[in-house]
């Protein structure tokens, strides 16, 4: 996967300053990171569901689900 939006999220998750910049200016921060116009719009609208979907953040749903013996 070479999705810059995902890499943006990865970067924000490790960098509180970048995250705070995003919270105060999602559009400008996304643009400065080099995201495409479409992805900048997703950020500008704060479309969390779309972002989660792109990150497969909810993919955790499909991971290990263990029932003890």
């Amino acid at each position: 996967m070479n999705d810059l939006l995902v890499k943006f999220l990865i970067a924000m998750d490790k960098d509180e300053k970048l995250k705070q910049q995003y919270i105060s200016d999602p559009k400008g921060t996304a643009k400065a990171f080099g995201l495409s116009d479409a992805d900048v719009q997703i950020c500008a609208k704060n479309d969390v569901d779309a972002i989660k979907s792109r990150c497969e953040a909810e993919g955790a749903d499909t991971l290990e689900i263990s029932h003890s013996k």
């Binding site: 996967m1 999705d3 890499k7 990865i10 990150c55 497969e56 993919g59 991971l63």
Partner: peptide
Amino acid sequence: SVVTESALVNLQMINSNVVCLR
């Protein structure tokens, strides 16, 4: 790895030889 797609991208940024077992 057995992680989400986004966590997999992060792993690939750290090590070039990542094999996903999902």
